[in-house]
Simulated scan of single mutants.
Amino acid sequence: MRPDFNRYPLLVAWEMTHACLLACKHCRACAEPDPLPGELSTEEGLRLLEELATYTPKPILLPTGGDPLRRPDLFVLLAKARELGLTVGITPAVTPLLTREVVGRFKELGVHQMALSLDGASPEAHDGFRGVPGTFQRAMEALEWAREVGLPTQVNTTVTRLTLAELPGIARVIVEKGVATWEVFFLVPVGRGAVLSQLSPEEYEQVMHWLYETSRDQGIKIRTTEGPHFRRVVTQRRRAEGAEDQALVGHGRGVHLSDGNGFVFVSATGEVYPSGFLAEPGGNIRQRPLREIYQHSPLFTELRDKSLLRGKCGVCEYKQLCGGSRARAWAETGDHLGSDPRCAYRPRAWQG
């Protein structure tokens, strides 16, 4: 049965801490070595997990950061999530804190998948983007450690002008290391990423066609973040090829997540955002339950109503499938319901 995203999210990302030892050029959070004042306590984190366990269906929990390994109570919280029957996909930073023993502990605590960032296919490219020498080699080791213990992995890559030429090499690494999923992030100019150079709409379109062909030809499961146009591209290409009209992307057939629609982001201090890239709060879990904020905040109810979309996105025949990146519309135009400025597609109703 298809989940009702008006009631509950399918994915809940929790920014467990702002602290991280890396200095990545694209960092949404502008993370620093130390935690923010007033981050959620262990008790508050446990209450959040207990609430999530009451949702139907139970959502997938995505502990992120910063670096979750910078929280001293991380394993206490993971053990609680396992006890509550929550599916967990964790995104640790690749630092000396990520050891073989830690990867084994993730497996023991029932973590479903570990996601690591990879923005270059060589030490020079990746370490330059991440800001710390040795990060590429440690990521390669961590992927091997995960394979040794049978922990599925995901690689996260952000598409910018700095990383565009690295994509074919990263795809090769993914195949060689037996990575289960490639999550491709299309840059939203927030945080440190605000100073990076984005691709043009036409270049983004070319990348999405390349991703489709790579997924089809190399058997890589590819998902996109802030790139919902990929669903349109997949649909168009499969129809043109006479294939069955089912997506290679997403979290199940017919399930299409977007900012505030099946996806929610809880910040380190409890603010609730539609995504980590759309930092417009709907409320704070210290004042109201996450369920109430997600179901009733005007921001979230607007984002789930595709009839409210404006401009080109509002008349697009693919708006239910895609709907454009709401975070990018917000970041580049100030309007979370406006058109995605990085979409090259011209809807039939827009053509004159």
Rank of each mutant, 00 (worst) to 15 (best):
W330P: 00
K177R: 15
R342G: 02
L187T: 02
R232Q: 05
A139M: 12
E213F: 04
W350H: 12
W350I: 07
V173Y: 00
T54N: 12
L98Q: 03
A327N: 04
F265P: 00
P63T: 11
V266D: 00
Q236V: 06
P189W: 04
G311K: 02
P96E: 11
R82G: 03
H209V: 12
T87F: 09
A139W: 00
V173N: 01
T269K: 14
K312P: 02
A31G: 03
L118P: 00
G45F: 01
V111S: 01
L308K: 15
G85R: 09
I293A: 09
R310I: 04
R47L: 13
T64W: 00
L49V: 06
G311S: 07
G104Q: 09
R310A: 13
V184N: 01
E15L: 06
P341T: 14
L299S: 08
T225D: 12
G254F: 04
V207K: 01
W145Q: 01
R100A: 14
T42L: 15
L62R: 10
E43Y: 08
L187M: 08
H336R: 13
P289T: 13
Y345F: 15
G66L: 04
V94T: 15
E226D: 14
V88R: 02
T214M: 10
L211Q: 07
A19R: 02
L84G: 06
L167H: 01
A93W: 00
A344C: 11
G250F: 06
N284Q: 11
K25Q: 14
V207F: 02
E124K: 09
G323I: 04
K221Q: 07
R47Q: 10
E144W: 05
R7S: 14
V88C: 05
N261H: 15
A121K: 01
G150P: 06
E51I: 06
L61Y: 04
L164H: 03
E51A: 07
Q198G: 10
